[in-house]
């Protein structure tokens, strides 16, 4: 217990980095994912193909490799591409999570029946009005569970950044372990991750409940 209290400040400091990355990734990749998801339902084939390629590559390769590409790979190409640690991982995470969210939103959009579009059409709603008032509100409800799963995965994925030397919760845990030569710091790390995923789960449940007003 003493050790736990002793290492806690350092671990909480690391948690800040973890949370910053988590927050930035969510704020950026959710709207981007919605945008890419909407665009991917276009009838313009080249755009569709391009988005498919992007999603295929990103979902088919490890996030860790993508982080390496941006942080270690790009600087080898040109010195212009030297990017700081935090911006590098934020870029990698946003590119990665946008692909996953886009795929979820695309599925959600395609689950809206043709009848909804036709109902809106004969009433004279424009495409944009239909998207905003009819499609997106229903899509948000259908995709919530899948989006929620990704968000929980994101909490844990943030630990990958320790490979580029960012002082996140994971790295703080390893340092404390080596300094104290004790397993307790890792237990505290686990408890903090559990607390984070726990909070996220509760928030998601509340949001899902909000959408329960219709079926």
């Amino acid at each position: 217990m003493e050790i736990a209290i002793k290492v806690l400040p350092a671990l909480l400091e690391g948690t800040k980095t973890t949370l910053l990355l988590f927050g930035l990734t969510l704020i950026l990749s959710l709207p981007l994912g919605l945008f890419v998801g909407v665009v991917s339902t276009t009838k313009i084939q080249p755009i569709k193909a391009l988005i498919h390629l992007y999603i295929w590559v990103i979902r088919g390769t490890p996030l860790l490799l993508q982080i390496f590409f941006i942080f270690y790979g790009l600087p080898v190409l040109s010195e212009q591409f030297v990017i700081d640690r935090m911006p590098s991982v934020v870029i990698a995470f946003v590119i990665n999570y946008t692909a996953y969210f886009a795929e979820i939103f695309r599925g959600g959009i395609q689950s809206i029946s043709k009848g909804q579009y036709e109902g809106a059409k004969v009433l004279g709603l424009s495409k944009w009005q239909t998207a905003r008032k009819i499609v997106i509100p229903q899509v948000v409800k259908t995709v919530m569970p899948s989006i929620g799963n990704e968000i929980i995965t994101l909490v844990k994925d943030t630990s990958l950044v320790y490979v580029v030397g960012l002082s996140d919760l994971m790295k703080a845990g390893r340092i404390a372990l080596q300094r104290e030569l004790n397993i307790i710091p890792l237990v505290v790390v686990a408890v903090i991750y559990l607390a984070l995923t726990g909070i996220v789960t509760i928030v998601l449940k509340v949001i899902e409940k909000r959408f329960n007003y219709y079926k």
């Binding site: 029946s113 009848g115 909804q116 109902g119 809106a120 004279g124 709603l125 509100p137 219709y214 079926k215």
Partner: peptide
């Protein structure tokens, strides 16, 4: 041209197509 032809022809669909939300 539904936006121009506004309110000329109304439709009651077989499946109604109400907006569930």
């Amino acid at each position: 041209k539904h936006q121009e032809a506004t309110s000329q022809i109304g439709v009651v669909f077989q499946e109604f197509n109400l907006f569930p939300h």
